[in-house]
Design a protein around this nucleic acid. Structure first.
Lengths: 403, 403
DNA sequence: GTGAAAGCGCTAACAG
DNA sequence: CTGTTAGCGCTTTCAC
């Protein structure tokens, strides 16, 4: 044991550099950590030695000594979901700028696994965690945010003066503007496709739709609201049954784009045209929303900013900066594309439906009403974002001394 | 310094448990690591103590002592890209099963950053790396795979007896089957939209298309091949210019789905119907491929299996198991959806195009030829995968003692 | 300015 | 079966 050098060219340590340069390990360390009290000459020689040996710190050793791992965990329900993938991309990008690595905690939508990860926090010794759209109850979550390791929340607010960094989106305003768009176009019989399991985000969107419609004097009875699984199949099933139960329906507000896309398919299957016979609006603005036919009118969520801001806030806390006492709220945007149109009475529609349909494709501008609000035909990804009025800061809030 | 206990209730250490239970730290450690030579009674008491104090190991300390971090890095070009997100999901899932955490190295498609990450390997002390579709040259890559830390490659093969765990996909076979599908349908003037920068995957797909077409006696001249950026905008631009230069074109093979989707939009913008006037086939089978209109005929890549298998292979190596000496090749599948149809002579088309178009929507089965090979109308996500003939193992190769 | 000593929390090697 | 002794490679006092 503890004998001399082996044959294997181990990674050089501080010791090796020290031996080469002819100073103590301490001095090397000081130079590497930009410590004070080092002569320029020594510093230069040390750097040379470091370069010559290709020295790199041993992260675990440093972590043990300092108590900081420079690791932050990112807890997401499903990294395979483009929404979270975008958030993750921005988060990891931002973390990298500050010299942090991101460990990916993918929960597969399972609260149990989420809990498991959170419980293992003390062991992992990550410096902080970004928790994305937690499925956990506020109570359970609160237990962790008051723990040893700092947590930033995305799309979840614990309310109160919790001093937890939180980034949310004004989904209610976004939902309301979508609802108003339809109401303004004359729609009076509007269906809502929300999703289950009941999450906070589902509730917020539903509320936004409901309040806005109410404000416009549009009545929604219980048959006009359905909760479906948050995917295309759910949207398809929900829309199909809604069309059957509410024959006079002229518009559909969906709690997410996948549901909306499913609803579009359902409409087609019924021989209904979108948007001529029925307007369909989504939420999220996933990539598929702009490439579907028709391109989906939807509410855009600033995914990248969510991820970036959460990391900013978290790292700010790690540096001891105070977090904002209330959630940072990012604005959503209503993106008007091709899936909405002015209302045409459902009776009229009933007659016209299943008749020979003219194409609604872009580039042909066929006979049809109300192209006014629609995005013009053109290259891919046509979209005309309309910023919501929003009291939240538009930019990147409190960036801790950015690059 | 080094005085007694502070007020702050630090995380309990081995020392605390040892004090409570009345044994040495070593014994605690042995119990926790399932070491031998512990009496059942001691083991029980230790476990109680551990539970009582809520003890959890300090990962960095353990890492320093053992030289293993139980971290594996996942290097991806872009986690925001659904393709890699899917791979990442499966990889992280698999890693978790073996008790590894995944650190996400997102390169933003930049070879420079990729190189940076790889160079920092010795410092991070991750136990292994999964490198996904590296942009690096074989030479550069080889330098790392022969380094200290084990690397598994996804979608990249260094060739030879490199003893590097590699998982690839038989993209050439997939591409060939797509090409043959079109040839069999009578298409003779077929365009190819490949992408730049020239990557191995682009080359392989191109080769698959080319060889297959050649075998079928279909000639492709240089004007029929274009390299575009690998996104919808690229597909749109490429297809638009191709339609202009090759007016008799009846089909388009695209090197990925995004390009294909852009091409579809370009076709629409020209007043061409898909698939009646022009067949368009993609590659990858991203989520948007099944929800577009028409749903895209494409070549499916087993993303989850790629990620899962790579991690299996890597962890196998970490355990000292030998890696397969040749790449594990996973089968692709041609998924026939709605964007292909039998060839109609381009002259005929030229006449019919821009005329009043009948809908091609599903559920209406309008007058049109060749629905034979198409998926029937129905609920979302219709797809009928046709497995390729493939000599590769279908299942999960060499799983190191799975769950 | 620089070096020496002590420990971060754990496991590995040996002794009993 | 269990305890003791050494480090893992780095940073942090504190002395010089």
């Amino acid at each position: 044991m503890a004998s001399n050098r082996q044959q294997a060219p181990r990674n050089p340590g501080l010791r090796d550099v020290a031996a080469l340069v002819g100073v103590s390990r301490q001095t090397i360390s000081r130079v590497l950590n930009d410590g004070p009290y080092v002569s320029d000459d020594t510093r230069r020689r040390v750097m040379e030695g470091v370069k010559a040996l290709g020295y790199q710190v041993n992260a675990p050793a440093k972590a043990l000594a300092t108590g900081k791992t420079r690791l932050i965990a990112l807890l997401v329900p499903d990294i395979g979901n483009p929404h979270f993938a975008r958030i993750a991309r921005a988060a990891s990008e931002e973390a990298e700028h500050y010299g942090y690595d991101v460990v990916l905690w993918n929960c597969g939508e399972s609260p149990r696994r989420e809990l498991g990860y959170l419980r293992s926090l003390p062991s992992h010794r990550v410096d902080g965690v970004v928790v994305c759209s937690s499925r956990l109850s506020a109570g359970a979550l609160r237990e962790f945010v008051s723990g040893e390791v700092p947590i930033a929340l995305i799309n979840r607010s614990l309310g109160g003066q919790s001093a937890v960094p939180e980034v949310i989106v004004d989904a209610e305003v976004g939902a309301a503007s979508a609802a108003r768009l339809l109401a303004d176009l004359g729609h009076r019989t509007i269906g809502i496709l929300s999703f289950r399991p009941p999450s906070e985000s589902a509730a917020v969107r539903l509320r936004g739709y409901g309040r806005s419609l109410e404000g416009q004097g549009v009545k929604i009875d219980s048959r006009q609201v359905r909760r479906v699984s948050p995917d295309m199949a759910g949207g398809y099933a929900g829309a199909t049954s809604m069309f059957a139960r509410v024959p006079r329906l002229t518009a559909l507000l969906c709690a997410n784009d996948l549901i909306a896309l499913g609803a579009v398919q359902a409409a087609y299957a019924q021989g209904l045209r979108v948007p001529e016979d029925v307007s369909i609006v989504g939420f999220d603005d996933i990539a598929a929303a702009s490439s579907s036919t028709p391109p989906l009118t939807t509410v855009h969520i600033p995914q990248a900013e969510l991820g970036r801001t959460a990391v900013d806030l978290l790292i700010g806390r790690l540096r001891g900066e105070p977090s904002p006492s209330s959630p940072v709220v990012l604005p959503t945007q209503l993106v008007q594309r091709g899936s909405h149109a002015p209302c045409v009475a459902a009776d009229t529609r009933a007659v016209s439906a299943r008749a020979v349909q003219r194409t609604t494709r872009r580039g042909n501008t066929p006979v049809r009403l109300g192209t006014i609000l629609r995005t013009p035909a053109g290259p891919p990804n046509p979209s005309r974002p309309i910023p919501n009025p929003c009291k939240a800061p538009a930019g990147n809030p409190e960036p801790p001394t950015r690059r």
